[in-house]
């Protein structure tokens, strides 16, 4: 599905990605983990075409995505910071995205699920951070695309909404979707991810299941295993 070959990216003097090779072929939840500044978001944005790599190629379903835009029809994206035009109402934003994508959507169910009905006629500028994130999630999940990319989806969510999010992720995997997630909340990753991609200093250090990672590091939970991985690499 996604084939990334040897991508490099520099921002000014800082080299963020130093030759990342990644092949994601199976459906399921793939968690991209790594310390702050390891290049997770840059990697995700390269797949979306938001960041243009200096070198290397990214293919989705066999097609090179460089300077293309139509392939994004098959991708749903949840950005890290939920910022929208302050003057638009929630319903107008939803309509805008529906209008842009021209696809069948299931926004009504999601609005009910996240209890957003009372906010539909409020301006986005007047919403709290958590409510904005809920709107963000509705936008990301409403289109039902085969590939989903979620950047820190749990930020600012209350426990109930986090549970709803997990349920949504479960149904999505059942429906055979490929999901890429970045998160710093290890319990969330441990509970949900089928595969872990560990990124550090712009390179992939580990790719495999949580069980393998725990076995390799000799730890019995993911948080400790990741910490061990970090220590090993710093030593």
């Amino acid at each position: 599905m996604i084939k990334i070959e040897n991508i490099h990216k520099k921002f000014g003097k800082v080299e963020v990605l130093k030759g990342v090779d990644l092949h994601i072929g199976t459906p399921g939840i793939h968690a991209i983990l790594g310390p702050n500044g390891s290049g997770k978001t840059t990697l995700i944005k390269s797949i979306l075409g938001l960041v243009i790599p200096d070198k290397g190629s990214i293919k989705i379903n066999g097609n090179n995505i460089s300077h293309q835009w139509k392939y994004r029809k098959n991708i749903d994206y949840l950005p890290q910071i939920a910022q929208f035009p302050n003057n638009l109402k929630v319903s107008e934003l939803l309509n805008l995205i529906k209008d842009l994508r021209n696809q069948n959507t299931r926004d009504q169910d999601l609005i009910k699920l996240f209890e957003l009905t009372p906010f539909l006629n409020k301006k986005l500028g007047h919403l709290s951070g958590g409510t904005r994130q809920k709107v963000n999630i509705v936008l990301a999940f409403m289109c039902d695309s085969p590939l989903m990319i979620l950047d820190e989806p749990t930020t600012g969510l209350d426990p109930l909404s986090t549970i709803h999010l997990k349920e949504l992720l479960k149904t999505a995997t059942k429906n055979g979707k490929t999901i890429l997630i970045t998160s710093h909340i290890m319990s969330f990753v441990e509970e949900n991810a089928d595969e872990i991609v560990f990124l550090m200093d712009g390179k992939i250090y580990f790719k495999g299941s949580t069980a393998t990672l725990k076995k390799n590091t000799g730890m019995n939970n993911l948080e400790a295993a990741i910490a061990e991985l970090l220590k090993e690499n710093h030593a």
């Binding site: 979306l48 075409g49 938001l50 835009w69 139509k70 392939y71 994004r72 029809k73 991708i75 994206y77 950005p79 910071i81 939920a82 910022q83 929208f84 035009p85 995205i97 842009l100 994508r101 936008l139």
Partner: peptide
């Protein structure tokens, strides 16, 4: 940020 959101769409 809104531009970023739009850019992620087709």
């Amino acid at each position: 940020e809104f531009i970023e959101l739009l850019l992620a769409h087709p």
